[in-house]
Amino acid sequence: MINSILVVDDSKMSRKLIIRSMPEEWDVPIYQAANGIEALEIFHEKKPDVVFLDLTMPELDGFGVLEALQKENNKVPVIVISADVQTQAYERAITLGAKAFIQKPLSGDDVKKVVQELRLL
């Protein structure tokens, strides 16, 4: 059961795009963060049930967030949405515990498909 969602991306446009492409069924609070540090603060306060995470960000990047969550042994599903689409980035994100990797630019039902595959609905 999804009760709240966290979207982390340094681009406001990108956050909006991600939110817009979420399944309609999710009528729950959505929190937003513009960098990794903000993300971890909100994460600990609001305890969201799913995280959409950009990789390249100022302050603390997405890999840093994944590492922090891994250290805490937190099993929250993290879906990486990144413009860095080289194999190295994908492999590192998955190793650090990301459940899925979506390439930017987002198109059509990318997010919905992944959400369904991960049975998050």
């Binding site: 681009s11 406001k12 990144s82 413009a83 860095d84 689409v85 390439q103 930017k104």
Partner: peptide, 13 residues
């Protein structure tokens, strides 16, 4: 913000 995101995606590709 929009241009930066477009550029970031372009660089990624």
């Amino acid at each position: 913000d929009a241009l930066q995101e477009v550029v970031n995606i372009a660089m990624g590709q």
